[in-house]
Design a protein around this nucleic acid. Structure first.
Lengths: 344, 344
DNA sequence: GTTAGCACTCGACCTCGTTGAGTGCTAATT
DNA sequence: AATTAGCACTCAACGAGGTCGAGTGCTAAC
């Protein structure tokens, strides 16, 4: 059977209406609401065909039609109008990015919150993994008689703190010397390169304050360890309560629970590092718990560095065009801000 | 009317049962389930008295009784069995505290998450305010040609990072000198003491690299500014969905929304800094949105420093004894860990 | 190929009677 | 005087039955 132009127009009407109302839509409604110049009976025949082709389905015998995953896929690929962000949306996103540029690992979380506000969807963010990046600088900063801080800067400008407690904290000068020594030894090393044999070698080279040196190297390893498994944050999860598809409390609960399962979210955001925005509809994600959801996701790279991934999770009838526009907007603003800062 | 022993035992039975079942409880049930040795008719009479005294109430004419705020208050003050944490609970909390002792500002959030798991309630945490504490140390750490990090350590061991972008980043030695100079000038100063006149004075004293110095002082001010309004975090908010009192979707939504209102949460946690655990029942908190909830809260001080506050929010029939035990446990473990670390 | 007409389906909603848990009151019992 | 048994009454919850309306598929006419 051929998917002629009229069928497409009808399918488009069904999907647009369903996105708006979340109610199954019947032939008469289409005839009345979307002046296609044909009668409801004709539309009925065409709808029957569309159902045979797998684009729409009847939830039960005497109900209207609802788009299937295949229907949404066609919509996203061919029918959806791609739009730009409104000025207001753009300004909002830009301000969030600009305001958090001083704490890059925090920025993605704040951005997620902003997207949640704009799209009214749930947002998942994964942080960049430190182990893939190299150590740029280490600095030991005194705190008091029992503790000092190890500050670790990676080449992707992520800064991590780690308090180190010790019976005998070296004085400020000693800490500075040790910082310099470690920096000299570890500069540009990948975080993965640090192991116990390296620690031993360094300790013998440095020759004194062994306790402190070991503690620092351990701390570096600990930071690495904790960053080793990807960090995942969610935001705006409560937004799903506003969607009628989750007005069943059990479904809502299941959804909340699903969005707490880190492993699943990692799978969801995926490992591919394409810079293109991806739309995953319903069961395409192969995750049973989220088969009623769609995900729009993107990876962020700035000058070749991975800043993490963002996924927008909503019901299958979510506003795809907005979601895509928002992710595109972020991509644009992020590079713009970074470029402006690096002064070129 | 006198609140005699028998009335108290009946009230206790009602509250205990209601905490368990969330259903209004009638005289016959009490007679059967809690062998008090009196008939349901007698219990009916006593319940009628208890209602007159304001301890219980009938939600509607032919229903059983439910405790009032006054009833819960009596329960918490006089009837509730105070219990200790189980070994398992204690171990769990201790491990969370110990594992995050290296990042103190992060520890409270992780602790909140742990409490949410234990109590199945929603948890609110407020961070300690930097402006009340003094600057212990500042360190400038190079990142790359366009940026360096200002690391700020407060006397309560909280460490804050702030990336500073500049056309001309001073080299490592210059940064070190500037760190030393600022430390010398600001040591033990309260964060509130830094203003533009001080900045001018310091800039003229230091004499060179004015741009960078101003940027750093601004950054210090910015950190102060952002910390100026209390930071509030929530955890385990979705737990409220499991309580039957919020099985009405509208109520659940209202609750979610309420727990996003920062101002309200600040009011809720309160400004008083008593070290005692406080129980606030229902409308005692004077917040209409949360009048169906109770809050158990505590402030944490270690060697006189405020670490922030934690509030456990649940329905009025929550497990008060567990909530109190958990907060007590945290208080204990926190001091224990800190003491162990400071080596005394 | 399109449309009007019609029988049919089925969820949503309303009404109404039944059930059962609960109360308060009164009179009998201890 | 306190307790209890008994009874009439109340009311939410539940299920059965009925109506309504939005929707369909099919057939015959245009």
């Amino acid at each position: 059977m051929l998917l002629n132009d009229r069928k497409i127009r009808i399918l488009e009407a069904i999907i647009n209406d369903y996105i708006l109302t979340a109610e199954p839509i019947g032939s008469r409604t289409i005839a009345k609401k979307y002046g296609l110049g044909i009668s409801s009976a004709t539309i009925r025949n065409e709808m029957s065909d569309l159902e045979d082709m797998g684009f729409i389905i009847q939830p039960h015998a005497s109900a209207g039609r609802v788009p299937t995953d295949k229907g949404y896929r066609l919509y996203v690929d061919r029918l959806m109008r791609r739009r730009e962000l409104t000025d207001e949306e753009a300004r909002f996103l830009q301000s969030v990015i600009a305001n958090n540029i001083n704490q890059i690992d925090y920025m993605m979380q704040e951005t997620a919150r902003a997207i949640a506000v704009l799209t009214k969807c749930a947002i998942v963010v994964s942080e960049p993994q430190v182990k893939k990046t190299t150590i740029k600088h280490i600095q030991l900063v005194p705190v008091d008689e029992q503790a000092f801080v190890m500050v670790l800067v990676t080449d992707s400008k992520v800064v991590k703190n780690h308090l180190i407690y010790l019976d005998q904290v070296p004085d400020e000068q000693a800490l500075a010397r040790m910082s310099a020594f470690i920096n000299e030894s570890l500069r540009e090393l990948c975080v993965e390169d640090i192991d116990s044999s390296l620690a031993k070698k360094l300790a013998s080279q440095f020759g004194h304050e062994e306790d402190a040196l070991y503690a620092v190297l351990n701390a570096i390893a600990a930071v690495m360890q904790s960053e080793d498994d990807v960090q995942i944050y969610t935001s705006g999860v409560r937004n799903i309560l506003s969607f009628p598809e989750f007005s069943d409390l059990e479904k809502a609960k299941a959804m909340f629970k699903a969005l707490e399962e880190k492993d699943m979210l990692i799978t969801l955001l995926g490992k591919n590092s394409s810079e293109k925005i991806q739309v995953v509809i319903g069961s395409e994600n192969n995750l049973e718990l989220l088969e009623d959801c769609s995900v729009i996701k993107a990876n962020y790279h700035v000058s070749g560095q991975n800043f993490g991934s963002i996924g927008i999770i909503g019901p299958k009838r979510m506003d795809y065009s907005q979601a895509v526009a928002v992710l595109n907007g972020i991509l644009k603003h992020l590079s713009a801000v970074i470029k402006a800062l690096s002064g070129k």
